[in-house]
Design a protein around this nucleic acid. Sequence first.
RNA 1: CGAGGUGUAGCGCAGUUUGGUAGCGCGUUUGGUUCGGGACCAAAAGGUCGCAGGUUCAAAUCCUGUCACCUCGACCA
Length: 480
Amino acid sequence: MAKEKQQEFVQHLTPREEDFSQWYTDVVLKCDLMDYTPVRGCMALKPYGYGIWELIQQQMDARFKATGHKNVAMPMLIPESLLLKEADHVEGFAPEVAWVTHGGNEKLTERLAIRPTSETIFCAMYAKWVQSWRDLPMKYNQWCSVMRWEKSTRPFLRTAEFWWQEGHTVHATAEEAQEETLLMLEVYREFCENVLAVPVYAGQKSDKEKFAGARATYSVEAMMQDGKALQAGTSHNFGTNFSEPFEVQFLDKDGTLKHVHETSWGTSTRLIGAVIMTHGDERGLKLPPKIAPIQVALLPIAAHKGGVLEACADIRDKLVAAGIRVELDDRDTYSAGWKFNEWEMKGVPLRLEVGPRDIAAGQVMAARRDTHEKLALPMEGLADAVTKLLDDIQRSMYEIALDFQQKRTATVKTMEELGEQVKTGFAMAMWCGERACENAVKERFSATSRNMPFDQTPVGEDCVVCGQKADIVMYFAKAY
RNA sequence: CGAGGUGUAGCGCAGUUUGGUAGCGCGUUUGGUUCGGGACCAAAAGGUCGCAGGUUCAAAUCCUGUCACCUCGACCA
């Protein structure tokens, strides 16, 4: 049965090898994750796509709470004067800010920016809220959408409006702020690997690539199946860069007035793009069980025959009781084969088939989305077996992605090697720290420095670009 | 924002070169037969051809402008 026959069911999707970008676009549309809207560069998240985002939110938010953060909600509009207070910040964001100029029919005396990010409004509020060292640290986060007038947009990867979380914290000392910055980077790394099953490289950005207004920026970088890097999350240490112009000060134990040390960190709906391009295959989406809105597609087979639907409903109830997200697909308007393909395309981790023969045998047929393996599971203890299978799928998906990432990462010593390596993956190289050398890599290969790993064990002695003595280990890659 | 490409029924496309009755496949609706890897038959509905101007007796087709999307760059999460 043919492989050729199965192949022809892989309909509608552009083959991954033929055109990765088109494959990606096909997947997001055909899997009902999002749709284009009448608003330039803005997407509508459909229930299935938003369901993934909700699961990301829930599990990430739990980690924020566990590390002592609280959620708040800030205004969507930011007065221009606030945005102008930090020079690097405004310079970085000015080209992509959307402005509100009128209220009703009246022109505003001061225009209002639709937030591209909320450092400034958080600072303005922290200036009111922080008085004493006893108020610190203050560790807040918000889930919201922001807007950046991007010149070219792509679903999930770069849209004009996107949904995200932005954490903003203020601390009494530089040490605490740095600790927080690295802590949240670690939360992101752990989240990507354990929840999204997306392996990442964590490290520090170069000065050239750091956030507008930050003293230090750290990132987690994921590798997509085309070998390109996707920045999956960032964590910034601002020091007192914002608290000075915004006069966020506190009276310390020693009786002196000091500026707070501030951090911010964010991840966005881009994570969904990372999941698609890390795990997807020729059949479409492949979701890790932890963020799959539907973990199990339960399919009645020959449902017109007596007892099948009842057996399915019973199984559904047992799985739901065990905390498994299950969808009983009892639509009689589609054939079994059609449904198999549909749920596979949509990336549902596990499919259970229940027909008269299974019921007679006291079992159900299970099919894994990740390996396409089919196996019979006894009806007895089914929920436990399914839970175990889902865990195994989660683990296996991470291992396969990790293997890919490792195989597509190589140490390089020359520009020629670097140019070859970034065609298909990440290059680890020595770098002297000069911006000119980063620029040279970008000009020749359209690749950028991604980040400097925390393990700085040298992989050579000389800068891969200029040949001068170098002591920085840097990842280079083409990036989304 | 630069280079290239595409906009015709819900989706995918043909028709545009050479102006002359709006087409095909899938999907949708209704009825029937099917049902363990995208079933079949019959009937039906559905389009001011992205938008705005212009040329013409006549424009999906020619001209000008504009908007959106896709690819590759530059910029950015």
